Simulated assay, not measured.
Amino acid sequence: MSAPTPRRRHSPAVYRRRRLVVLLALIAVAAVVVWLLVAQPWRGAASEIPVPQVSQTPDASAQPTPTATPSPSATPTPTAEAKPTPSPTATAASDIEPCLARNVTVEAVTDRTSYAADQQPAFTITLTNTGGADCTMNVGTTTQVYTVTSGNDVWWRSTDCQSEPSDMIVTLAAGQSVSSAAPLVWDRTRSAVDTCDQDSRQRAPGGGASYHLAVEIGGVGSTQTTQFLLY
């Protein structure tokens, strides 16, 4: 039996080459690890995946509350007998109290103090809130009454032949005075509920005859009459 052949010992140069290869491999692995940590290539792939958007259902309490559209104030329909209506600067509000008669003054107004034979008197109403607070009042033609008298004789009343009267609630500011938007013209004839045909009415005498105008609006009458003369 032959003796085993002794292993050949490598030269130091071989060992140095092997250690260099191992060292280079470790450096390459470390470089790859560092690149992965810095570059983070997986982020680009993740950003390409669409993220579903969650639609939120609005809370019921967040819905806008519809505001009530104010209905336009009724506009009185002009008639031959009663068409003027005071023109306050504001419409009525539901939280404002109605006017009290003691806080309202009403005045009968004529456009002249005397009228020639070919002139017809024109009447208006002046309304004043003498109270310290705003108040509401119905100033429509349903509440307006113009009355012309001569002595104790009632010659003409605006409601005798009034057609299609209407309501109009307005707000009168404290201290505010308003007047009729348009005058009411008297044709100088006697009125009656059964003589609405003006051609058949009796004509009021002239020649300097004295007449008086009284008015009422919203249930409040004028404190005094206004005198005028017809010629």
Results as ranks from 00 to 15, higher is better:
Thr75Gln: 13
Cys99Ala: 10
Leu36Arg: 14
Thr143Gly: 09
Val38Arg: 13
Ala214His: 11
Phe228Ser: 08
Val154His: 09
Pro121Phe: 01
Gln63Lys: 04
Thr89Ser: 15
Thr141Glu: 13
Asn129Glu: 12
Gly218Asp: 08
Ser177Glu: 10
Asp153Leu: 14
Val220Asn: 08
Tyr146Thr: 05
Gln162Ser: 07
Ser55Gly: 02
Glu81Cys: 02
Leu172Val: 06
Gln198Ala: 14
Ala82Gly: 02
Asp111Lys: 04
Ser55Ile: 01
Ala60Phe: 08
Ser222Ile: 04
Ala116Tyr: 04
His10Glu: 02
Val148Asn: 03
Pro165Gly: 05
Trp156Gln: 05
Pro88Arg: 04
Gln162Ile: 07
Gln198Ile: 13
Leu172Arg: 08
Leu229Cys: 00
Ala25Val: 13
Ser87Leu: 04
Arg16His: 11
Thr149Trp: 01
Pro52Glu: 08
Ser94Leu: 09
Val51His: 05
Val29Asp: 11
Ala74His: 03
Val215Pro: 10
Thr147Asp: 05
Thr65Leu: 02
Asp194Glu: 07
Arg17Ala: 14
Gly175Glu: 07
Leu229Met: 09
Thr75Lys: 09
Leu24Met: 09
Gln144Gly: 04
Thr110Trp: 01
Thr159His: 07
Thr195Ile: 04
Thr91Phe: 02
Leu172Glu: 05
Glu48His: 14
Pro78Glu: 03
Thr110Phe: 00
Arg190Val: 13
Arg201Ser: 08
Trp155Val: 15
Phe228Asn: 07
Val106Arg: 01
Leu229Pro: 00
Trp35Phe: 13
Val32Trp: 09
His10Met: 04
Pro52His: 00
Ala90Thr: 13
Cys161Ser: 08
Pro12Val: 07
Leu213Gly: 12
Gly151Asp: 11
Val178Thr: 12
Arg203Ile: 14
Ser2Met: 01
Ile96Cys: 08
Ala209Ser: 15
Pro58Ile: 00
Asp118Asn: 14
Ala204Met: 11
Gln202Leu: 12
Asn103Tyr: 12
Ala173Phe: 00
Ala117Ile: 04
Val34Gln: 08
Gly175Thr: 10
Thr225Val: 10
Pro76Leu: 01
Thr136Pro: 11
Val148Gly: 05
Gln202Ala: 15
Leu229Phe: 13
Thr57Trp: 02
Gln40His: 10
Tyr146Val: 09
Ala13Met: 06
Ala31Trp: 13
Tyr146Gln: 04
Ala116Arg: 11
Val104Gly: 05
Asn152Ile: 03
Pro165Tyr: 06
Thr67Val: 05
Pro6Gly: 02
Thr65Val: 09
Val148His: 03
Gln224Glu: 15
Ser71Phe: 00
Ile49Gln: 14
Gln56Gly: 03
Thr77Tyr: 00
Glu48Trp: 12
Thr147Met: 06
Ser191Arg: 02
Leu229Val: 08
Ser11Ala: 10
Arg16Glu: 10
Trp35Val: 14
Trp42Pro: 00
Ser210Ile: 11
Val178His: 03
Ala62Asp: 07
Ser150Ile: 05
Thr189Ile: 01
Val145Trp: 03
Val14Glu: 10
Thr136Trp: 10
Met137Lys: 03
Gly151Ser: 11
Thr124Arg: 09
Gly175Asn: 10
